[in-house]
C-alpha cells in the first residue's frame, strides 16, 4: 500500500450530502473490470451525459479540478453499497484524500485499506474551504498533512482533524493489515481453541441430511 504522509494540491468541491457508492462507481463496472482501470468510470453518472460525452459543467470535468488529489464532499460520503470499487475508482482518478463532515463506516474502512485518507472536518469548515477554492479556481491549494493531523486551507488557516491512531500508523507506513494480524496467529489460535470448547455449536457446521 502506498504510504500517506502529506498531500498538497487542488481540492475539488462536490458538496452534496449522501454521495453513495453506486454513484461513485456503477455496479456494472465491478464486473470484469480491473481495479486499476476503475478510475476512468468514477462518477460517470454525473461526469457523462446520456450520449456518453463529458458534461463540462460537472466539477470534476473542470480543468482546474481534473486530477485533483483532494475531494471536498457533503455529509455521509460513501453511503450505500460496500463495494471497494468506489475507493479504487477515486484512487484511479488521482484522489488521495476526501474531506467531508462524515463518512459511511464501510467506505471509511475500505479507504484505509487502500491508502486513501478520509478526513472529517465540520460542515462549516468544509464549506469555507470550498468557498476559498471556488474564489480562486486553479490557484487555490489545500494541504492534508497526516503526520500533524491538519488540513491547511488556501488562506493558510490550519484545521486539526482526528484519526484512529492505528489507522494513522498503518497509513503513514503503508502497512498491510493482514500481515499485522498474522503476527498474532498464535494468540488467535489459542483464543479459538478456548472458544471452540465454550461455544461448540458455533464451530459445528456439518449439515443434516434433508429428509
Amino acid at each position: 500500500m502506498e504510504p500517506f504522509t502529506t498531500v498538497t494540491g487542488p481540492a475539488a468541491p462536490l458538496l452534496r450530502a449522501n454521495i453513495d457508492t453506486d454513484v461513485i462507481i456503477r455496479v456494472e463496472r465491478l464486473v470484469g473490470t480491473t481495479r486499476e482501470s476503475m478510475g476512468a468510470h468514477a462518477f460517470e453518472i454525473w461526469r457523462r451525459r446520456p450520449d456518453g460525452t463529458e458534461d463540462p459543467e460537472f466539477v470534476l470535468n473542470r480543468k482546474e479540478f481534473r486530477g485533483a488529489p483532494i475531494l471536498l464532499a457533503g455529509a455521509n460520503f460513501g453511503c450505500g453499497s460496500s463495494r471497494e470499487g468506489a475507493v479504487w475508482a477515486l484512487a484511479g482518478m488521482g484522489v488521495r484524500a476526501v474531506i467531508a463532515p462524515s463518512f459511511s463506516d464501510i467506505f471509511r474502512n475500505n479507504a484505509f485499506q487502500n491508502g486513501l485518507l478520509p478526513v472529517v472536518l465540520d460542515e462549516t469548515t468544509v464549506r469555507a474551504i470550498a468557498a476559498q477554492v471556488e474564489a480562486a479556481p486553479g490557484n487555490a491549494r489545500v494541504t492534508v498533512d497526516l503526520e500533524r493531523e491538519v488540513v491547511i486551507a488556501p488562506d493558510g488557516t490550519v484545521h486539526s482533524f482526528a484519526i484512529d491512531p492505528a489507522r494513522r500508523e498503518t497509513l503513514l507506513a503503508g502497512l498491510d493489515d493482514i500481515g499485522l494480524t498474522l503476527r498474532a496467529a498464535d494468540a488467535i489460535a489459542a483464543w479459538q481453541r478456548a472458544d471452540r470448547a465454550a461455544r461448540p455449536w458455533a464451530w459445528h457446521v456439518v449439515p443434516q441430511q434433508r429428509t
Binding site: S82, E84, Q113, I188
Partner: peptide, 22 residues
C-alpha cells in the same frame, strides 16, 4: 456486517477483523 473485499480477504486469511467498536 458488510465489509469491502480487502477486509473480506483479511477475514478469510485470519478468521478475524481489526475493528474499532462502534
Amino acid at each position: 456486517f458488510g465489509v469491502g473485499s480487502s477486509e473480506l480477504t483479511h477475514a478469510l486469511a485470519t478468521q478475524t477483523l481489526r475493528l474499532a467498536k462502534p
